[in-house]
Design a protein around this nucleic acid. Sequence first.
DNA 1: ATTAAAACAAGAATGAATATTAATGGATGA
DNA 2: TCATCCATTAATATTCATTCTTGTTTTAAT
Lengths: 142, 142
Amino acid sequence: MDDQELYAIFRKNGYKVTSQRLAVYNYLISREDHPSADEIFNALKEEHPTISLGTIYNSLSVLRDLGLIQELGFNEGSSRYDPNTEVHVNMVCEKCGEIHDYYPEFLETLWEKITNSLEITPTGQRIDIYYQCEKCSNQMKE
Amino acid sequence: MDDQELYAIFRKNGYKVTSQRLAVYNYLISREDHPSADEIFNALKEEHPTISLGTIYNSLSVLRDLGLIQELGFNEGSSRYDPNTEVHVNMVCEKCGEIHDYYPEFLETLWEKITNSLEITPTGQRIDIYYQCEKCSNQMKE
DNA sequence: ATTAAAACAAGAATGAATATTAATGGATGA
DNA sequence: TCATCCATTAATATTCATTCTTGTTTTAAT
């Protein structure tokens, strides 16, 4: 999705196009993992010296309400933000919290088998697999 | 699982058996949905007049660390506690937050297809489907 | 029964997230 | 061009779930 498409989505829904919102979204899609609001804040401070953490939260809420991103709440710590709203698996390291997306073969077909049996229409989904990433399981051995 | 089995699990892992821990676990398995710490606290106050919210959190942490329950963190509000740690689907109403478990046909087989493709061994999983429950979608129409 | 370790209750502290408020800066029309 | 409007922003205060601290009580081994 390029910025022009974003502009259109914002305006169609009555939101103004602001450099802060664009920056948050573009930063999110630039990353493979799913950063927290604070991480985004620290990353954008350099190019946007006056941006505030409140604005980050605000922008993330707008993006989430527009369905452009998904917010992932966890047991501990802060929420993480995922620019991918399609069906996929979040591989979550239970030690360091690192997250990356995973697309098993035939996932969409399998997921359809599950959702087809429902009487209602889902508005979203979340699939997490918890494990220990290579880095963390190596540290355990030492 | 009866209380005797619980006793054994606690002791085997170096935890003492306390009435508070038993009460929290037994209350959880008595419920179809997945209450929050505060709900558990309010429910147990009658039979345990001196119990504190801190103790609820403590007991829940112990039960979680023993693998007896799963903690589900969400974007908004408090964590919810699920005494079912097997593979299942959490049906989460995005309006009122009500949760109930769902077991689609062949879920275990489908899930094995997904996890078999992994190089690592998962330590846990979480599958949520977000939707609007009947009560909430009826309220929207009015 | 004695005793040490673990767990408890009560309340303070923490920290993520939201709410509030005044300032900012485009857009619009005179 | 200028003034006004209004959503958004930045800064700050506040909320609320959860964790931590302290002193007391309970558990369970001896």
